[in-house]
Amino acid sequence: MTRTAEVNAMMNNYLRRLRWGLSPLSEADRQEIVREVGSHLIDRLGASPSAENLHEELAKLGAPEEYARQFVESFDLSSAIASGAPWPMMRQAFRMAGSGALTALHSAGLLVLLAVSASLMALAPLKLVFPQNVGVWLGPGRYSFAAGFLAHPPLGGSEVLGYWIIPAGALLGIGLLKISIVLLRRLLLTVQEAADHRAGGLS
C-alpha cells in the first residue's frame, strides 16, 4: 500500500520541524538524524501507512521540537565531556541543572571548588607583585589565623610560608582542579545517562 498525500505531508511536516529543532547541530548530523527518523517511520508504518497510524507513531516520538532537544542536549553533553575542559563542562552542568535539584546542587558545589582552585593558583603571580599582601599569617593572638591575598595583613601576625606559598598554592590549586574535573565528568556522565532515556524507559 502506498502512502497517501496526506500521510506524506504529515511525515514531511514532522521531519521538517525536527530538522529545524536540530539547527544547533552540524548539517551532516542533522541530515543523518532526520533520515534515520524518516526511515524509522516508514518501517513502523509498514503495509498500513494510514494517517491514523502515522499519528500514533509520531506521538510515540513526541513533539518534534522536544525530540530534537534530546539529540541536541546529548550532543552538547558528549562534546563537553570529550573536551575534558572545566569551563565547557561546568557550563553544561549548569544548563542541565534544570533536570534535577541534585544536579543543581552538585553543579553549585563544583563551581565553588573550581573557584577555590583558581584562587589558590592565582596566589603565585599575586605573591610576586604584592609580596607583603599574600601569605599565611599566625597571630597575634593564640588562635588567630589568616591566609590568602589580604589588603591589610594582620598587625602583629607573623607570615609563616614566605615564597613557599607559590609552589604550595600552585600544587593545591592544580590538585583541586583535577579533582573538580573528575567530579564534573562523573556528574555529566550521570546526567547523560538520564537524558538518554528522558522519553521514558517503557513504551
Binding site: 534515520e36 510515540k60 538518554d196 517503557l202
Partner: peptide, 11 residues
C-alpha cells in the same frame, strides 16, 4: 524501551 528513546541512545 520507547521508540523515542532509542535513537538518541544509539546516536
Amino acid at each position: 524501551i520507547s521508540d523515542g528513546s532509542i535513537y538518541p541512545l544509539l546516536n
